[in-house]
């Protein structure tokens, strides 16, 4: 383990969704997945990493108490804070980054319950200050004219990747990227490209996995539950 891994890090958990596409009235981060609220999985994996000294999580205002309750029950005594959600994902990420106490931050989202201790650790051990998981796209893609509904051309899948979380950032670079994006009026849907585009910093691409799925729809929950119940792969 190198020196970087010994430095304390903050886990930033994006958890602000309101779950309009899924099966319950509660936001999807609270949906039960094999007995636990989905958001618990990202927290359980973090409790096993000593270097993670705090966990910061977003919560919609009306679910602040419920989020606090889940964190108290699953954080294994690690300090945590429940913070407001921003208007966009980008705002939420900025709110978390500003509140973090450490120079190194791990950014994750509660909708990816397959995160493991090993993934957090691999990011912390990575010699680059900024790193994330990127997975090959195993299917064909193309561009379509939305107006005419006609196929325009193919997109080479050798050049594009699925951006997965968790990611690791140098907190200063992440905040600088947010400030620059706000100043330029740019909206990003994730932070690795934002940091790359808006600052001089580079983001190291680690190999992602198909198991690290994002659980959003009702079908995703069914798939995730079956995956969790299946033997280790």
């Amino acid at each position: 383990m190198n020196d970087l891994a010994q430095k304390p890090a903050s886990l930033l958990l994006l958890s602000g969704g309101v779950g309009t596409r899924t099966r319950h009235h509660e936001p999807k981060q609270f949906f039960e997945l094999c007995g636990h609220p989905m958001m618990a999985y990202a927290v359980i994996a973090a409790t096993k990493i000593d270097a993670i000294s705090e966990i910061l999580v977003n919560a919609p205002k009306e679910f602040h108490d419920r989020t606090h309750e889940v964190m108290a029950n699953y954080s294994g005594g690690k300090p945590f804070k429940v913070l407001e959600c921003g208007k966009t994902r980008q705002d939420s990420s900025f709110i978390l980054a500003q509140a973090a106490q450490n120079d190194t931050v791990l950014l994750h989202e509660t909708a990816r319950p397959f995160v493991t201790r090993e993934m957090y650790q691999e990011l912390l051990d990575d010699p680059e200050g900024n790193a994330g998981y990127f997975h090959d796209i195993p299917f064909s893609m193309c561009k379509i004219d939305r107006k005419t509904k006609m196929v325009l051309k193919g997109v080479s899948r050798a050049k594009v990747f699925d951006v997965q979380l968790p990611q690791k950032f140098n907190r200063e670079s992440l905040i600088e990227a947010h400030q620059a994006a706000i100043a330029a009026g740019k909206i990003y849907t994730e932070d690795s490209v934002m940091v790359t585009k808006m600052t001089e910093a580079r983001v190291h691409a680690l190999t992602g996995s198909s198991r690290n799925m994002k659980v959003t729809s009702q079908e995703d929950f069914t798939i995730a539950e079956n995956l969790m119940k299946s033997k280790k792969t």
Partner: peptide, 10 residues
């Protein structure tokens, strides 16, 4: 039986 499932992620 319940714990066998619930403690898997740990």
């Amino acid at each position: 039986e319940v714990l066998r499932e619930e403690l898997k992620p740990y």
